[in-house]
């Protein structure tokens, strides 16, 4: 059993399509998110994890290096092309969040697709987004309790949505059988060709 090193056209196209579906959801999600955000108590942060979901879902489906980063960038690019209100900032957020996920999957050498790894990836993406928020949103100048609330809410939301929800979503998708076409082929399958047929 061997894994092709670089991503094939099929891998890339499927990842981008998944990302675009999420970017359409983001686009619908955006106004809702802003509306909740007006109140300032970070309720909005609970659904922030939705923005990282493309990365974990795509990775769990294709299971190759680079997919999480590509998915996050493509989702941002998609939303940007459809006139997403957050604009260029999305591309940079996509980059740091994607890198956050990617690093976690890389730590497990892209071999583990367990629930807790997915949740860790969600944490990775959260850390990435927080780093950029320091520059972009001056979040370090918030009152300490408020900053804590923001971080905790975003983490909880991310773990639940990017981690748990994405994991079970892909599990449900696996049941439909469509993901089988991209998973590596086992040695047994090749062996069967050799066996005598009667």
């Amino acid at each position: 059993m061997y894994m092709k090193k670089s991503l094939t056209l099929t891998d890339i196209l499927i990842t981008i399509v998944i990302a675009f579906i999420f970017s359409v959801i983001y686009k619908l999600w955006g106004p809702l998110y802003s509306l909740v955000g007006v109140f300032g108590l970070h309720v909005d942060q609970l659904i922030y994890g939705m923005w990282f979901m493309a990365a974990t879902v795509a990775f769990l489906i294709i299971r190759k290096p680079g997919i999480a980063l590509l998915a996050e960038l493509a989702a941002a690019q998609g939303e940007f092309l459809f006139g997403g209100q957050w604009g260029i900032s999305l591309l940079l957020y996509g980059l740091v969040q994607g890198v956050g996920c990617e690093l976690v999957f890389a730590m497990y050498r892209y071999k583990s697709y367990r629930l807790y790894v997915t949740c860790l990836a969600a944490v990775g993406a959260t850390i990435g987004s927080l780093l950029l928020d320091v520059f972009y949103g001056y979040i370090d100048s918030l009152a300490a309790w408020n900053l804590t609330l923001l971080i905790v809410n975003r983490l909880i939301g991310a773990i639940l949505i990017t981690g748990v929800f994405a994991y079970y979503l892909v599990e449900a998708l696996d049941k439909t059988g469509v993901t089988k076409a991209f998973r590596p082929i086992s040695q047994d399958d090749y062996q069967m060709l050799e066996d005598e047929v009667n």
Binding site: G177, K180, R183, I185, S186, D189, M192, L193, V197
Partner: peptide
Amino acid sequence: LRAKFPISTSLLFKD
């Protein structure tokens, strides 16, 4: 030619 789909248990083409 012999061929088989990963999920199925039988060969699609047998010789």
